[in-house]
């Protein structure tokens, strides 16, 4: 496996060898790592900077530490797996692929994620998230596990505000704080857990070598748009 020292070789070296499996060392906040990458695998050591894996188009990025803001921005496909926590605006406008964060995510995670044909964006957070999770959600699946924080709220305020498609699954029984009246909360039954959550969570657990059973334990709730309160009712054409 090729080793690229970010401080010596920089982003150009990553681009020159796109498609290979590379170890990226010495990261100290360098931005735009893996931007638009179509193939290949990056093992990132240290702390990458903002906009990691934005427009990611099929490649795989593993991050050993924490990631900063705007990770996986407008991502199209591929995998971003972060062993630490992620900053704000994670997976903004993501259309496909998988983003896994073992730790926590900041504000505005999964805003305006989408799904289209065989692309189904999937965001799984092992810990908790800040406010504005999944706002404007237009498709795809967000799962927040809150591992180790079973007794606390695992999302912040304004969870799912303005979402109109897709589903947010939370491993908790607590309704998110100030949940909008345009959203519905329902309990997830065993059948749905097996069918939808299990394959995703098993994949998540295998990436981080966790016990899938632990991640699946307890009950889940789902947040979805209330279809009877759509945007179009807002208007009157002149």
């Amino acid at each position: 496996m090729r080793t690229v020292d970010m401080r010596k070789d920089g982003l150009d070296a990553l681009k020159a060898h796109e498609g290979e499996e590379m170890e990226v060392t010495g990261c100290l906040g360098e931005r735009y790592i893996g931007c638009g990458m179509k193939s290949g695998i990056l093992h990132v050591e240290g702390t990458p900077g903002n906009a990691l894996g934005s427009y990611l188009d099929g490649g795989t990025i593993y991050v050993d530490g924490n990631a900063q803001d705007a990770t996986a921005d407008t991502m199209n496909s591929g995998l971003v797996a972060i062993r630490g926590s992620a900053g704000d605006a994670l997976a903004y406008g993501m259309r496909g692929g998988r983003v896994y964060v073992l730790g926590d995510a900041g504000y505005r995670a999964g805003v305006h994620m989408k799904a289209y044909e065989d692309r189904k964006s999937t965001l799984v957070i092992g810990g908790r998230t800040g406010s504005f999770l999944g706002e404007y959600l237009a498709g795809g699946i967000i799962i927040v596990l809150g591992l180790g924080d079973e007794q606390r709220d695992i999302t912040g305020y304004f969870c799912g505000n303005g979402m109109y498609a897709g589903t947010i699954y939370l491993r908790t029984e607590r309704t998110p704080l100030n949940l909008s009246d345009k959203l519905v909360r329902r309990n997830v039954d065993e059948e749905e857990k097996e069918r939808i959550l299990k394959p995703i969570i098993e994949d998540f657990a295998s990436v981080f070598s966790l016990s899938a059973d632990r991640c699946m334990s307890g009950s889940f709730i789902a947040i979805e748009a209330d279809e009877s309160k759509s945007y179009s009712q807002l208007y009157a054409a002149v």
Partner: peptide, 12 residues
């Protein structure tokens, strides 16, 4: 647009 048919397209 890469959004499903019949689904509104909202720009935040």
């Amino acid at each position: 647009r890469m959004v499903p048919e019949g689904l509104d397209a909202i720009s935040p």
